[in-house]
């Protein structure tokens, strides 16, 4: 078992997630964009999709399946980009127009 498969790795990832949430919250506050519960939920789902894409590519490279890594990266990556654009528009709902 390597570091990246260990409990310590997931502990550190957990800290990263907390920092991301705090940083993102402040960033959105600075832009006066409200973040109700449903926006956090959608954002969480998108983060899972994004994380899945990265881990999918990595796992298939590790399994020596480059075709799956490439195709998966393209297909899921495109889905992640397209949904990110849609998600950003949804996140902007309720933004103070002056800012």
């Amino acid at each position: 078992m390597s570091f990246f498969n260990s409990g310590l790795f997931w502990f550190i990832q957990g800290i990263f997630v907390c920092l991301i949430v705090v940083g993102f919250k402040i960033w959105m506050e600075d832009r006066e964009i409200p973040m109700p519960f449903w926006k956090w939920l959608l954002l969480g789902i998108w983060v899972l999709l994004f994380g899945f894409t990265i881990a999918f590519v990595g796992t298939n490279l590790g399994e020596k399946e480059p075709q799956a890594a490439l195709l998966g990266g393209i297909v899921f990556g495109l889905i992640a980009i397209i949904t990110a654009v849609g998600l950003w528009r949804l996140l902007l709902i309720g933004k103070n127009p002056k800012k």
């Binding site: 390597s2 990246f4 881990a55 990595g58 796992t59 298939n60 590790g62 399946e65």
Partner: peptide
């Protein structure tokens, strides 16, 4: 993590 999971 994915890479390690794949080759582990």
């Amino acid at each position: 993590f994915g890479y390690e999971a794949g080759r582990d």
